[in-house]
Design a protein around this nucleic acid. Structure first.
Lengths: 228, 228
DNA sequence: CGTTGAGTTGACCATCGTCAACAGGAGTGG
DNA sequence: CCACTCCTGTTGACGATGGTCAACTCAACG
């Protein structure tokens, strides 16, 4: 029965496909191929021909750029509902790797583009998502360019918490499926500096480090640091 | 005569309006209000209701975000052909100030949005621009997060050169209408560090500092630094 | 000719990076 | 079951890159 899968998809409301009417959803579903990736598996590399776009349905993904000498900048983390392909022209501008087992809806970029051409409000949705991502990227520039190490870590935790909150995750426990190295590469720091900042926040009882995450004990204090 | 101004506009090919047919151009022109800003004049502030969108026709503009304690991050510089309003929802996410006398086509955001709704390929153009901006913002994250002071300055100069090149500006002389402070706030550095990096490049004959700009003397060497 | 503001340069210092040692958990194999 | 490795993360000691503070030059402008 066409449409049956997407219709019951939990992440649809917060995703690209949330913009679609039922009959359009069926069209989109016809193009989608569900794909799984194992932990650590690369979905695609940076600067290769972009053949697909993706909608993350479960798990989380790191998106990164590499410099020739190996320095790495994580440009974002994708979580369920996120769309990969907003800024993909002919070639990918970043690489993507599964942080944990990940499932996606994978689309041929060509077929997806063709559908978009005939569905202005899908295009509109993509535009709105791209605008929002652009705004987040600018916020990240402020964080990396003008904040101290501790502020960066706190902003990161509060930002993640906000994103997970969209899935009514227990909002004081922030899952951290990424390594310290990923966090460091996202914040323009080293792993040691991230570790020290987290330890310090733990010592001060502002957070509690738990397996694969942190619990935010003193949100007011954290927000005071981030608002500075 | 409708359409006569836009039709001969030099920046149109590289701008949003380049996507439009002649009859659409006339519609757009009907909405446009030409406005001038003096040097240093603020076009709009951060986090205020976004009532207009803008297309820069001459001069250049700094776009910045402020932290409550006054730290500033320049998130970009707009030059002729650039569109301000890609990432503006109900409120502005950055402030904008003229670096030199600036002229723009100013549009009511509402009227512009209405036109966009009826013109899918204008929407498409905006989406492509937003994607491109997103990709540039990610590149900027790499520069700020993972590059040394000297590399940042070199990347900045080469990046600006590339943008000015779209207007067949003499491509080895890069105009710098912004102050050292603006450059520093763009690169996540201080004015002193920027000044020192530029002086060093000058001493090494890689660049020549000229009034309101630099001449790139040894592009190969600069590119070697940036490619690192 | 004094004032102002941008830019440069120097001396010193702090934040964060580097290098290294260590802890603890997961997986592996004797 | 224990020893072993491997990997991630933590912590400490030290150092370098870039920030801070201050003095100075220079051009623009009245």
């Amino acid at each position: 029965m066409p449409g049956s899968i997407c219709e019951h998809c939990g992440i649809r409301p917060s995703s690209v496909c949330g913009a679609l009417e039922q009959h359009e959803l069926a069209e989109l579903e016809a193009l989608a191929r569900p794909v799984c990736y194992a932990q650590r598996q690369q979905m695609f590399a940076q600067d290769e021909p972009a053949e697909s776009v993706y909608n993350v349905t479960s798990g989380s993904v790191r998106l990164y750029r590499l410099l020739p000498d190996g320095r790495r900048q994580v440009v974002g983390f994708a979580i369920p509902g996120d769309f990969l392909g907003l800024s993909m022209s002919e070639r990918t501008v970043f690489g993507a790797e599964a942080l944990e087992p990940v499932t996606v809806c994978k689309f041929s970029r060509e077929a997806f583009a063709h559908l978009v051409d005939s569905r202005p409000h899908l295009l509109r949705r993509l535009y709105d998502l791209a605008s929002h991502e652009l705004s987040l990227a600018q916020e990240q520039m402020v964080i990396i360019g003008r904040r101290t190490a501790e502020e960066r870590v706190v902003c990161f935790l509060l930002g993640l918490r906000k994103r997970w909150a969209a899935f009514n995750h227990n909002s004081v426990t922030v899952p951290l499926p990424m390594t310290r190295q990923d966090i460091a590469d996202f914040l323009g720091l080293t792993i040691e500096t991230v570790s020290r900042a987290i330890s310090k926040l733990g010592r001060e009882k502002a957070i509690l480090v738990v397996p694969d995450g942190v619990r935010l004990l003193d949100v007011a204090r954290l927000e005071a640091i981030a608002a500075r």
